[in-house]
């Protein structure tokens, strides 16, 4: 793998641990500019953690994380903040500000980081809300939204500053088939029309494979497979086959690391 400027994000030899548990053990990963890259893997493998590492909220144990040529773990706080203004992140939980209305939530980054007048902010916010189909919900409080709606508002907020890159943490959970379809199209559209770089973390194999240009499968702290959706679909390795086709038996671990079940039941203690 070569370092070239086609990659917005380059991760090399990244290791990260929570307590004694290695979450990542030397992974390499590239996000190409202008493409939708999907990161998939069993629950609890560290997909959210990976996004937080890219966003500079966590520091790696070792390895390098370059975003747009800048080494994220080494940035000063103000440099990191400048970089983050160009990254949107959609949190798994939405992370909307609960004391602000939907409208004010989407307007929040604009008001914090720009000197635009209220009239312009209003137009921008309504445009973003229209894109996620929630223009009519602008006066609701976050507590009055369903989980899926909250995530769509969070998406509108993430694109408010027109970032160069968006990280979506599980954008599809809690969406009905229709809004799921809209979201899938929206992610693709935003990516292509605005020239964004997108990272989608998801379990939904079919939807994700439908929009991703490139997929990484991670498990047990390693990248176990990577490739275009078509290539992965043809891939014969039992791991990939099991994960991509959702079969219950195979090498993909479903359990959090634990001692042998029989030993546990018989109570070695």
């Amino acid at each position: 793998m070569s370092r070239d400027s086609d990659n917005l994000v380059e991760i090399r030899g990244l290791s990260f641990a929570r307590g004694d548990r290695m979450i990542f053990d030397g992974i390499d990963l590239d996000l190409r500019r202008g493409k939708v890259t999907a990161i998939m893997g069993p629950s609890g493998t560290g997909k959210t953690t990976l996004l937080r590492l890219i966003g500079g909220q966590l520091r790696p144990l070792s390895g390098s994380i370059r975003v747009d040529g800048q080494e994220v773990p080494r940035l000063r706080r103000d440099q990191l903040f400048d970089l983050r203004k160009r990254m949107g992140m959609l949190f798994q939980s939405g992370a909307l500000l609960t004391d602000l209305t939907v409208f004010d939530n989407v307007a929040f980054p604009l008001r914090e980081h720009t000197r635009l007048g209220e009239a312009l902010i209003r137009d921008l916010v309504l445009m973003k809300l229209e894109a996620v189909g929630l223009r009519g919900a602008r006066d609701l409080m976050p507590s009055e939204l369903s989980g899926g709606m909250a995530r769509r508002v969070a998406l509108a907020r993430a694109i408010a500053l027109d970032p160069m890159m968006i990280m979506y943490d599980e954008p599809f959970t809690g969406q009905d088939p229709m809004s799921m379809g809209v979201l899938v199209k929206l992610i693709r559209l935003l990516n292509d029309a605005l020239g964004l770089t997108s990272v989608v973390v998801s379990h939904d194999v079919a939807e994700t494979a439908g929009i991703a240009d490139y997929i990484y499968l991670i498990s047990g702290g390693k990248v176990v497979a990577q490739g275009t959706p078509e290539a992965l679909d043809r891939e014969r390795s039992p791991w990939v086959n099991q994960f991509m086709h959702g079969e219950p038996d195979g090498p993909v671990p479903f359990h959090y690391p634990a001692p042998d079940f029989a030993d546990d039941l018989l109570g070695a203690g």
Binding site: Q57, K85, M87, M89, F91, L96, L161
Partner: peptide
Amino acid sequence: MKATEQLAGMEMMAV
């Protein structure tokens, strides 16, 4: 606000 990731969300918005 911390428990519901609102503070983390703000940090990611560079606030």
